[in-house]
Design a protein around this nucleic acid. Structure first.
Lengths: 232, 232
DNA sequence: TTTCAAAAAGGACATATGTCCTAAATTTTA
DNA sequence: TAAAATTTAGGACATATGTCCTTTTTGAAA
C-alpha cells in the first residue's frame, strides 16, 4: 500500500466521479489517496477499522472465510464503491476481507475525521444511503439466487454477467475466466462440482473450453438457464 | 388494513421508540398509523411502493418467492424496523413480500412527503443509515451462514436464537415452534429434510418432540453445533 | 530451456438434500 | 360434533453436491 498526497490527482478523481460535493472545505486536507497492488489486502475480516475508503480505480474482491477455512466470495466491486461504510455506521470490526484483484486506487479518510466534519453533511449522508442501499439490493438478489437455485442456474447467470464488460458491450464470445476456483467460491460451490457443470454445459453446446478459458457459444441458452437476470 | 389518525396514539409510539427527533414540525400532519391483522400483507414483491413504514408494534415476516413458487423467508422483524427504505432510496419496486405474523402497527408516510420534507434532515438520514446498515449486516451474516454451513448447523443456530425471547431471558426449554414449514423456508431447505435433521437431533438428545412443538434439552450442545452466533 | 508450483480436468465414492407419496395427528371451519 | 383442511412424520428413491485423489496442462521462476 502506498499513501500519496497528490492534490491534483485527488482533484481529478473527485471530479471524474462527480463526488466533490460530498465533502466540504474543512475535510479536504484530511483526504488521502491510497494505492494497492494486485493481490494486496485492503482490510481483513475481524480486525478494527480505521479508514473509510472510496474505490476510484481498479477492482476488488470481497470475501469471507469460515472457521473451517472455506472461502465464499461475496462480490467483485469496481468504482464507484465504498469500503468500510457499514463498519463506520455500525461501529464494528471489519466484516469481510477486501483484496485488490488489479492495481487499485482509493480515497481514504479516517472515521474520526468523518465524524468530526461530515456527521450532519447531508450530501455525504445521502451518498452513503445510495451506495449502501444499492449494495443491500445486490446482496439480496445474490443471496436469493444462491439459495433458491442450483449451481447450474448460478453458473449460467454468472457467465451471462461477464459476457458483457463494464461498457455493456458484448465481449466477443471469449470470456477470459480468471480463475475457476474464484468462480466456484463466488457461486458457493466446490471446484469439483463447478467442473462437472461446465462439462455439462459443453455437452449441451452452451460453452466450449479453450485452454482454461471458456468460450460462450449460446448466450441465449445461458440466459434462459439463468432464469432471472441477477445483474439487471 | 386500517388507517387511523389518532394523534395521541402516534405521540405515544414516537416517544416510546424515541423517534420524535427524526421528524420536523411540517411533516407531522402527514404521518399516519396503520394497523394490519395477522396474516395480512403489508406489501408484495414486484409492486410499486407508495409508503415508507416504520414498524412500531407486532412482528412481520419478510419473504421472497421464486418463479417456481419456492418460498424463502429472509427474516422476521420486530420494532424498531423500517419497511420500504431500500425501495425509497433506490426508487424501485418492492423487493420482498412483507406479511404480518401478529397484529401489527406501523407509522406510514408517503415517499413524496419524505422527499419534500426530510431530504436534507440529517437526523432522519442518520436514522435510515443506522437501520439499513444493521439490516445489511444481519443479511450478510445470514447469507454467509446459509451458504457456508449445512442444514444441521443452520437449524441449531435457529433454535438457539429462539431459545431466548426478545428480553434475552431463556424461554424455559419449550420452544413453541409456530410452523415447521416456516422454519424450513427460513433456513433454506425442504420440509422433508428439516424433519430428518430434527430426528437426528432427537436421537442425540439435543431436543425432544412434543406434539408439534420442540423442547430444547441441551442448549449448550446446540450452541456448539451452531458454530457462530448468528444473532449476537 | 528446465524446474516447479499452480491450475485444470475428471474418476470414484460418500453424503446432503430434494421429490413424491402415504398415513396419522391436529386444527379449523361448517 | 362432524367434516375438511392443514400440519406432522417419515419411507423410498433420485439427484445435487462434496471430498479425496490422480493426471495433465499451463505459466512463472530459476
Amino acid at each position: 500500500m502506498k499513501e500519496m498526497n497528490a492534490k491534483e490527482q485527488m482533484e481529478i478523481y473527485l471530479q471524474s466521479h462527480k463526488i466533490e460535493s460530498l465533502f466540504n472545505e474543512e475535510i479536504l486536507p484530511y483526504l488521502s489517496l491510497y494505492e494497492f497492488d494486485k493481490g494486496q489486502q485492503i482490510c481483513s475480516q475481524g480486525e478494527a477499522v480505521e479508514n473509510l475508503y472510496i474505490l476510484v480505480k481498479g477492482k476488488v474482491k470481497i470475501f469471507t472465510t469460515s472457521e473451517e477455512g472455506k472461502t465464499l466470495i461475496l462480490s467483485f466491486k469496481t468504482p464507484l464503491e465504498v469500503i468500510g461504510d457499514i463498519e463506520y455506521v455500525q461501529e464494528i470490526d471489519t466484516i469481510n476481507t477486501v483484496e485488490a484483484v488489479s492495481p487499485v486506487v482509493m480515497i481514504g479518510v479516517r472515521q474520526s475525521v468523518l465524524r468530526r466534519f461530515l456527521k450532519d453533511h447531508s450530501p455525504f449522508l445521502q451518498f452513503l444511503l445510495r451506495i449502501i442501499t444499492r449494495k443491500f439490493y445486490i446482496k439480496s438478489q445474490f443471496m436469493r439466487h444462491n439459495i433458491l437455485y442450483p449451481v447450474e442456474t448460478r453458473l449460467a447467470s454468472y457467465l451471462v454477467s461477464v459476457a458483457y464488460d463494464e461498457n455493456e458491450t458484448l465481449v466477443n464470445g471469449n470470456v477470459s475466466v480468471s480463475n475457476l476456483t474464484d468462480i466456484a467460491n463466488l457461486i458457493g460451490t466446490s471446484y469439483r462440482h463447478l467442473n462437472r457443470v461446465i462439462k455439462e454445459f459443453c455437452k449441451n453446446g452452451l460453452v466450449e473450453r479453450n485452454k482454461g478459458s471458456i468460450v460462450i457459444k449460446d448466450l441465449e441458452g445461458l440466459k434462459s438457464l439463468a432464469k432471472e437476470n441477477l445483474y439487471e
